[in-house]
Design a protein around this nucleic acid. Structure first.
Lengths: 256, 256
DNA sequence: TCGAAATGCTTGCAATCGAACGAAAAAACG
DNA sequence: CGTTTTTTCGTTCGATTGCAAGCATTTCGA
């Protein structure tokens, strides 16, 4: 095993799982913890990691956008489960929109089995992820680049989204609450997702269950403006009732 | 076994397996590790490999995704020279456009030292290359993705370019001939570069000298619609005279 | 709340192994 | 046969890793 490979793998693990533990990595690679710490030092110098006690977390902890995802230590299994569920809602030939959330990136990975999908997205990561799928049409919104999330935002991006109409929009968010509806951490995220919702026949809101009963900073829309909620575990009875009341379908593992 | 054959085989192995080990290759070809290392040096200069302790990995070690365009290893040295020359034409604070050519990708790498540049590009690779530069504004055209070049094309991309006006457009092409002007291999490339030329105060045409006296399929513009030609070696007297006549400045190494 | 005990972090050192360099030998080429 | 390219060899240099000692942080019980 090349040293640089280990470092890269750790970076990928960091990116997908948001955090890593020194002891765990040392055991996994069969090296001492000192070696792992030195790897993390380098990643930190490269701006990919922030060391913490016992491990490291992804990126720069001072960024507000990231602190949310870090707090919610989003677990990969949940996102794969969600990716699988959403995939079952998409048909061959569909035209869809995907936002720039990490959940959408996982969903994109799961969609690759489909045929002749047309995707519109503002996420550079999703574009590169899907670039090599045969027979698909990938379209990118224009716009200004947010370097920390590799997302395209701004009026240009919104205008592009409004120009098209797709079968399904797939979006995620930072919080969903009965009182405040669907919320996100910033204005431009919110506006973009709003635009996607309005340009789509159906909207699929994909969120891991930790987002339930959370409210973030900016409101995107009310819950009744979306078609389907997909989550990785069965919500509370109160939420199920609320979804029913709002005429929103809710998909979770084992749901009929 | 010819040395060049071995080098090519190593490159293929790198491409398919993502990494190679020096010791392993030395044993396989029955040569010393020193020889393998020199092969890897060459591959690295051509942009195909990144050397590491004990071996080499494909592409750029720090970036997660591998560069498609960089595989086109033709004239790497020339492109670095051109990148350097073009860089000297750009001032801090400039607003520029970059097309999706591999030459532009190299230019982008050389521009990173500048401050507060605003870049508009239709190349996904350039976007990811420049994403981490502090203080820059990166904007992407929207459009349909051409997977083989990771470029955004189509009416959407052109419309976005037309909406803005920048100080300098930097483009490349497939051929430049006295009779047919600037040409490229496809309609959508041509239209996009046309749009960039019209949206810029100055246009810098960057091309390695192998493109001179070649004509490709679709005409972009006449030579007189651009401001400056940058190339990596001094053109023939005939071309220098032609540039003069057309009122086009020509930059090459050693030019005053 | 305070103060160990436990756990994790940093640093210096040494051993190992790959990399870089130069010179000489071998092979390829005209 | 002379020249150029390729390869090898030996030495020196630098990178990586593990170990151990000392310091810092967290945790937990009193």
């Amino acid at each position: 095993m090349l040293a640089i490979e280990r470092k890269n793998e750790i970076m990928n693990k960091l990116k997908t799982e948001q955090r890593v533990l020194v002891a765990e990595l040392a055991k996994h690679y069969g090296v001492t913890e000192e070696t792992i710490r030195r790897d993390l030092d380098k990643l930190e110098k490269e701006g990919c990691a922030t060391k913490t006690y016992g491990g490291a977390i992804w990126g720069n902890s001072t960024k507000t956008d990231l602190s949310y995802t870090i707090r919610n230590k989003t677990n990969v299994d949940a996102k794969h489960t969600i990716g699988d569920l959403v995939s079952s809602l998409i048909s061959d030939g569909d035209h869809i929109m995907l936002d720039d959330s990490s959940t959408s990136l996982y969903i994109a990975k799961h969609l690759k089995e489909k045929h002749k999908i047309t995707v519109i997205t503002n996420s550079i990561e999703i574009i590169t992820e899907l670039a090599d799928v045969e027979g698909w049409t990938i379209m990118s919104t224009g716009g200004r680049l947010k370097p920390e999330s590799l997302a395209l935002v701004g009026a240009q991006a919104q205008a592009m989204i409004r120009k098209y109409h797709v079968d399904k929009a797939i979006i995620s968010c930072k919080g969903l609450s009965a009182d405040f509806g669907i919320t996100d951490s910033s204005e431009y995220h919110s506006l973009l997702k709003q635009a996607m919702i309005h340009s789509a026949g159906q909207t699929i809101l994909a969120l891991d269950s930790s987002k339930l009963d959370k409210a973030s900073f900016v409101k995107i829309e009310n819950l009744d403006s979306i078609t389907t909620v997909v989550t990785e575990q069965i919500p509370s009875d109160a939420w199920l009732a609320h979804f029913e009341e709002m005429n929103v379908k809710c998909i979770y593992p084992g749901a009929k």
